[in-house]
């Protein structure tokens, strides 16, 4: 027995070899996020005549493990915009904290709540977020997310845009991240192929389309969940529901699926 306290509780050199102190020394290039760890899947959104509907399920996956089933991936900002996050959850939390601080900064300069949203529209918020994302990619330290921003622009027209970990940004009458780009976007484009089409959609129609898409995503995306969040952003503000359940599922189609492609037997 070694009686020196320094030795207590440590692996013995003669059994395990000398401790490798290089563990404590950070050498080599700075290690930023280089791959996402805990991830959220699709976010989908569609414009309608008075605003935008946006939805995302409540799952955070750890690889193929459904790790956290109560994760809110839609974040309201100043009751005027909703930010939907796909991709790494820790980076989402970082951005969420960052946006909260930004909201406090806005409150410092603009004490009146109704004035705040006039200055900080979804369009302005998006411009800011795009710069943050592009700046981080320029420093090889990306925030591993694809983000949708829903709300109104500076002329009070519906606004919807996307930015990803490289700072690539774009807008469209409907948008979807991740799997949703392949599965939900074609369905949404049927209802809102152009801005003019989207401007004809009612709120109810838009909500129905989004719910239908969430169902399709749950059928076909293995990293998805049947509990989801959905938000409607209009001039009146944000209406966010964070614990919705997919309704009227039918798995009857599953029986007919055999093998891949056109195989029927």
């Amino acid at each position: 027995m070694d009686h020196r306290p320094q030795a207590w509780g440590r692996p013995r050199d003669d059994v395990y070899g000398a401790y490798d102190p290089s563990y404590f020394h950070n050498s080599g290039p700075k290690t930023a996020t280089q791959s996402p760890i805990v991830t959220g899947t699709s976010v989908i959104a569609i414009k309608f005549k008075d605003g935008v509907v946006i939805a995302a399920d409540n799952l955070a996956s750890y690889g193929s493990l459904a790790r956290f089933t109560d994760v809110k991936r839609l974040r309201p900002f100043l009751n005027a915009s909703v930010v939907g996050f796909g991709g790494d959850v820790s980076d989402m939390q970082y951005l969420d904290r960052h946006l909260k601080e930004l909201a406090i900064d806005v409150a410092y300069i603009t004490p009146e709540a109704s004035e705040q949203t006039k200055d900080f529209t979804a369009a302005n918020l998006f411009t800011y977020l795009q710069k943050v994302m592009y700046h981080r990619r320029n420093h090889f330290d990306p925030l591993w997310n694809q983000i949708l921003v829903a709300g109104l622009d500076n002329d009070d027209a519906p606004f919807l845009a996307s930015v990803d970990l490289r700072g690539t940004s774009f807008t469209s009458p409907s948008l979807a991240t991740g799997f949703g780009a392949a599965l939900a976007q074609p369905i949404m484009r049927k209802y809102a192929a152009t801005e003019e089409d989207a401007a004809k959609l009612t709120r109810e129609q838009a909500v129905d389309v989004v719910k239908e898409c969430m169902k399709v995503l749950f059928y076909r995306d293995a990293r998805s969940l049947d509990r989801y969040s959905i938000a409607v952003v209009t001039k009146e503000g944000v209406e966010l529901k964070e614990d919705e359940q997919l309704e009227r599922q039918s798995w009857a189609f599953a029986e007919r699926i055999k093998g891949y492609g056109t195989q029927t037997v």
Partner: peptide, 21 residues
């Protein structure tokens, strides 16, 4: 010191890390 080797290693054992981004 008990189990710490005296000289710290300078280079990371596996060499420089690859940036995957």
């Amino acid at each position: 010191n008990y189990s710490f080797s005296d000289s710290p290693r300078v280079a990371a054992p596996e060499g420089t890390r690859q940036h995957r981004f």
